[in-house]
Nucleic acid binder design. Structure first.
Length: 459
RNA sequence: GGCUAGUUGGCAGAGUGGUUAUGCAGCGGCCUGCAAAGCCGUGUACGCCGGUUCGACUCCGGCACUAGCCUCCA
């Protein structure tokens, strides 16, 4: 199986060939833990989980690193605003992060380093950069000397002359070049900081990823992933630091970036305030619906978030789980070749999902004797996307925690009403039977009378 | 000003130098006490203007529009 990936570096769709045949390395930028994550943060979590699953099918060993940023200006500001210690704040939001993504069905990365655990190697990298003439000190800061790197801007395809310095943020006077960025900044009295050769301070934002990738995966990694908005300056600066600290050896060979999520056509971001928190979405929707909704659009493209995309995902999953109610367990199968092929072609999830629909349709239309085979194929193929791993009846009867109020009916009440309705039907008292159907419908319960009795599910 | 991505049927969304994407919704039928689900059938599309070609939604050029980046961001 050959995987092709869109590579931001160069802009083409390249065949993926790992540096070492036996060991693939992937680093993905994880959350900064100063707040709950929004649905836009969830997209790379799901997209790179999918890539991780695919790589694991193709290569013997895959090492996936996803960091947690637990030191940063926004964290310090948030801790001050909430009047709690930094460590307490980051512990709280780290725990919330894991709670929030659990329903998305993502595999745990192999390594999840936290920035604060890597201060020593960060200082070492800064020293190497200073020694190599790629950094300088000014007013207590250590800054990366951008003009010292000839290829700077190759990822985001900009040259230094074309940048509009200070377009959005004022340029500090101590910078030699407007594009120079902070490697180490001084900590004010009472602020979080670590001792360093340049005084007490803390690392710049970009440094941690360079260092943690280097420590765990080596100087040159295969895949570096993240959201599009990290291309510049974050990833550009990571390249600059790592390449210059590693004697010019390349940092990452394939750069993979997911598109952002929009709301009403506008980018969702914490700064715009139009974000949808993942935990709020999950109060009303099954996590698997969120996962499928996120995979319903090719990962590179913008995805306009709405109840519509969630509803579309829900209907597809409902259809598939209804079919799987009849699946016999234990029928093993490999994923459908066309599904695998679609995924290998730059993670073409819409095409893979279309194929799942075709498999499902074939199962519905097949004679009963052939059904098990189709359903096993459906389940195995969906598993390649991290889908349909739940027990069908439980999934179909799932209700969001937020719906557990007085209007909702419990399973026992529903079963009792169904028994009452079936007694009415046996007595041909159809008006009474229909009254119960309507009552259940109002509670979101759908009844289906089949040859083997009455089946129910929640919608 | 520079750079990036995009524009496909009522909606979502792939792909392709000539032949059904797929799903949802719609319409007709089968099935059903009523329904639901499912099945069968069915309509609708490639932003605009040029060019290349036997043939362009697809390739090339230009234009328009949308979104984003140019040191907070997934």
């Amino acid at each position: 199986m050959k995987i092709r990936l869109s590579n931001t570096l160069g802009g083409g769709k390249d065949e993926f060939v790992p540096l070492r045949e036996d060991r693939v390395t992937m680093y993905v930028c994880g959350p900064t833990v100063y707040n709950y994550i929004h649905i836009g943060n969830a997209r790379p979590i799901v997209v790179f989980d999918l890539l991780y699953r695919l790589l694991k099918r193709c290569y013997r060993m895959v090492v996936y690193v996803r960091n947690i940023t637990d030191v940063d200006d926004k964290i310090i500001a948030a801790a001050a605003a909430e009047q709690v210690a930094i460590g307490e704040l980051t512990r709280r939001y780290t725990a919330a992060f894991y709670d929030d993504i659990a329903p998305l069905g993502v595999l745990a990365p192999d390594i999840e380093p936290r920035a604060t655990g890597y201060i020593r190697p960060m200082i070492k990298m800064i020293q190497r950069l200073l020694g190599g003439g790629h950094a300088y000190q000014a007013e207590g800061h250590v800054l990366f000397d951008v003009p010292s790197m000839p290829d700077y801007g190759q990822l985001s395809r900009r040259d230094l002359a074309g940048l509009q310095p200070g377009a959005r943020v004022e340029v500090e006077a101590y910078k030699r070049h407007p594009s120079d960025f902070v490697l180490w900044k001084p900590a004010a009295a009472g602020e979080t900081g670590w001792e360093s050769p340049w005084g007490r301070g803390r690392p710049g934002w970009h440094l941690e990823c360079s260092v943690m990738a280097g420590v765990h995966l080596g100087e040159t990694i295969d895949i570096h992933g993240g959201g599009r908005d990290l291309v510049f300056p974050h990833h550009e600066n990571e390249i600059a630091q790592s390449t210059c600290a590693h004697g010019g050896r390349p940092f990452a060979r394939y750069w993979v970036h997911n598109g952002y999520i929009t709301v009403d056509g506008e980018k969702m971001s914490k700064s715009l305030g139009n974000f949808r928190m993942l935990r709020d979405v999950l109060k009303k929707h099954h996590g698997e619906c969120v996962r499928l909704a996120l995979l319903g659009v090719h990962y590179k493209k913008p995805l306009d978030w709405s109840d519509g995309v969630l509803e579309q995902a829900r209907r597809a999953l409902e259809k598939w789980y209804r079919l799987l109610l009849d699946a016999r367990p234990g029928v093993a199968a490999d994923a459908d070749p066309q599904v695998t092929e679609a995924l290998c072609d730059d993670l073409n999830t819409p095409q893979a999902i279309a194929r799942l629909h075709e498999i499902a349709h074939a199962a519905s239309a097949a004679p009963a004797a052939d059904r098990a085979r189709h359903l096993a194929l459906l389940r195995a193929s969906a598993a390649a996307l991290g889908l349909l791993g739940h027990e069908p009846q439980a999934w179909l009867r799932w209700r969001p925690a937020a719906a557990a109020d007085d209007a909702a009916l419990g399973d026992d009440e529903i079963e009792a009403l169904i028994a009452e309705r079936n007694r009415a039907r046996d007595g041909r008292d159809y008006p009474a039977a229909d009254r119960i159907r309507r009552r259940l419908a109002q509670a979101g319960v759908v009844l289906e009378d089949g040859a083997e009795g009455t089946r129910w599910l929640r919608q």
